[in-house]
Write a protein that binds this DNA or RNA. Structure first.
Length: 374
RNA sequence: GGAGAGGUAGCGAAGAGGCUAAACGCGGCUGACUGUAAAUCAGCUCCUUCGGGUUCGGCGGUUCGAAUCUGCCCCUCUCCA
């Protein structure tokens, strides 16, 4: 597709990290970037205006969830996702492949597709690569995902191989079914933590010539090093001029290491979910705002943060709102976590352009000072 | 003054002879969360030098054993005068 492409502007001399512009039908966005997740066509607690003001580029929505409620036809009737949710920037829809993993006990996989029992009322819901694409075309996102199987970790070799090969066949079927020219369909690399499977999957997908590639099956409980290996295996065989998207990754260290390995896009529910649960990511580490030590702390959550929350409110107030279960508290905390990660990404892009991204990683992670990196 | 009801951990509230240091809820404290079945989930919440020690309004009694049965006392609430 002609109106979707990655323009690489600079490669960091320290790490090989990429800085570029991703052109989409709904505008240009800089990469590497973090994409907030709005599963049900809303980034929980935030308005589109807030997301824009925080510097969000692309946001996600979910094919499985939206197909159940409110239904793909309704979204289409509303004029597509952008209009429906009043977001004029780029949107990316996940295919439902993650639900094959997260709702594992409610589905059955066959060569043809996945039979779900939907999580709300147990109704049968069949997803095939073609059906997923059909729904994604109705939703109308700028970037859409192939229907894949996200396998658990650990998975035995035989299963990982069988599943990866099926995911490849599904990728081809989805590609064949995809008709809309204003949507970029990404292939997803699977293969568990097995080098040969990951490499084979990446190679085959590259041969299929997708406008972009995702790395899936990561950040599902595997050790950090395993995740980093899985990235390396895939990236080696992915075309350099196409965007690379590491799915489901949102903690600080994974993001920064991922960028250094040549990843351009990330999404994760972590910042929004953590915020709703009172956990904040700050420049000096993680903060659990509920903790008693913040009761009379009238300083901002993160003095180094430029978000609306940190500019205007104190920890004591945020703790108060959280403890009283006030909606506004969750909004403020979500604003902070999302803005914090976007801000980190802005810093990353600048560092890459100045060939000091390796130093940037060290500085950020040292200041954060937490093994877990979030 | 008369008639009832009741006093259980920070609060509310179960328990009606041993399985009870005492359910459950709230409150309090602390974790977790990674392509969202998550404004969710988990743990702790009498004291302790981890051996044990002291609890169910108070002081006695019955019993091998009492928050539970019993005597007296104190205190609350409701209704009637």
């Amino acid at each position: 597709m002609e109106n979707f492409y990655l323009e690489i502007k600079h490669i960091d001399k320290q790490t090989g990290a990429r800085y570029g512009i991703l052109h989409t039908p709904h505008g240009d966005v800089e990469v590497p970037m973090f994409m907030p997740v709005g599963t049900l066509a809303t980034v929980k607690t935030l308005s589109p205006e807030e997301l824009h003001s925080m510097g969000a580029g692309v946001i996600l929505a979910n094919t499985y969830h939206l197909s159940i409620r409110p239904g793909a036809d309704l979204v289409k009737k509303a004029g597509g996702l952008h209009k429906f949710m009043n977001w004029d920037g780029p949107i990316l829809t996940d295919s439902g492949g993650f639900q094959v993993f997260s709702l594992a006990e409610k589905r059955k996989i066959t060569e043809d597709g996945v039979e779900f029992k939907n999580h709300l009322n147990g109704d049968k819901l069949f997803f095939s690569p073609e059906i997923a694409i059909d729904i994604e075309e109705k939703l109308g996102a700028d970037i859409i995902m192939s229907f894949d199987e996200c396998i658990p970790y650990p998975a035995d070799y035989e299963y990982a191989k069988k599943s990866m090969e099926r995911t490849l066949r599904w990728a081809q079927r989805g590609k064949d079914a995809h008709k809309r020219k204003d949507q970029a369909l990404f292939g997803i690399v699977q293969g568990g933590d097995y080098q040969d499977l990951r490499e084979e999957c990446a190679k085959k997908l590259a041969e299929m010539n997708f406008p972009g590639y995702s790395i899936g099956g990561t950040s599902i409980g595997e050790p950090k090093e395993v995740c980093f290996r899985m990235i390396d295996y895939a990236v080696k065989y992915l075309p350099e001029n196409k965007p690379r998207y590491l799915m489901g990754v949102g903690s600080l260290d994974y993001l920064l290491i991922g960028i250094s390995k040549g990843i351009d896009m990330f999404d994760c529910v972590l910042p929004t979910r953590l915020a709703r649960h009172g956990a904040l990511i700050t420049s000096t580490g993680r903060v659990n705002i509920r903790d008693a030590k913040y009761k009379e702390d009238f300083s901002p959550l993160d003095p180094n943060c430029d978000c609306y929350c940190c500019k205007n409110y104190t920890k004591a107030y945020l703790r108060h709102l959280y403890i009283c279960d006030e909606t506004f508290g969750k909004r403020l905390l979500t604003i902070h976590n999302i803005r914090f990660l976007i801000h980190i990404m802005e810093g990353a892009r600048k560092a890459i352009q100045e060939d000091r991204f390796g130093d940037y990683i060290k500085v950020v992670l040292t200041a954060f000072g937490d093994e877990r990196g979030f």
